[in-house]
């Protein structure tokens, strides 16, 4: 049985009220969702965003008709929550300084400050770049997750690359 089919059967069981099955669903999706959220809101907030989303997804699960679409459905929820999250959670940035050492992952690219470069992009541009560059999705697939037309996805990606090119050019000696 494929991983996707396995996830769908777990989602169906969870929808029928099986808490354990939902635990397995969370385990299966956690890494992908945290990575996606991290590209949009950064290291400090990503896990909080995803945890909130998975909690709401549990409550909204009876409304999900197609269990096969759970991953895309919850990814859309994470994207929307990320868009809202930044607006009112500015104070959470303060907490990062008080977190114990080792809780924030170390940047594997010390030569290129990825997080700082991402700060130059809008949240939508970051989401499009993540799904395209990291997940390797097509424009139609990205559009389905972000509720955008493929043309809009391309426009966001083009603008993101233009912004990055400009920043990288400025940084060159």
């Amino acid at each position: 049985m494929s991983v996707r089919a396995d996830l769908a059967s777990l989602v169906r069981a969870a929808r029928d009220g099986d808490d354990r099955a939902y635990g397995s669903v969370v385990e299966a999706c956690w890494d992908d969702l945290v990575r996606f959220a991290r590209s949009i809101v950064g290291d400090a907030d990503a896990e909080d965003v995803v945890q909130e989303c998975l909690l709401h997804a549990w409550r909204a699960l009876p409304r999900l008709r197609d269990a096969d679409r759970f991953h895309a459905w919850v990814s859309t929820a994470v994207f929307r929550r990320c868009l809202r999250w930044k607006r009112w959670s500015w104070w959470r940035r303060e907490r990062v300084g008080t977190m114990p050492e080792g809780t924030v992952s170390v940047d594997p690219n010390p030569g290129l400050d990825v997080e700082r470069l991402l700060d130059r992009l809008t949240r939508r541009q970051r989401a499009v770049l993540h799904l395209t560059v990291v997940e390797g999705m097509s424009d139609a697939e990205v559009g389905a997750v972000l509720s955008m037309k493929p043309g809009t996805v391309r426009a966001h990606r083009r603008r993101a690359r233009e912004s990055l090119e400009q920043v990288l050019r400025e940084c060159q000696p």
């Binding site: 635990g23 397995s24 945890q51 549990w58 924030v104 594997p108 690219n109 990825v114 997080e115 560059v133």
Partner: peptide, 20 residues
């Protein structure tokens, strides 16, 4: 960006599942 984004989350999936 690909390398940065593919890092494992700080909280392991099984711990996150228990929290949720």
């Amino acid at each position: 960006f690909r390398a940065w984004a593919r890092r494992a989350p700080v909280t392991p999936a099984d711990v996150a599942a228990k929290r949720v």
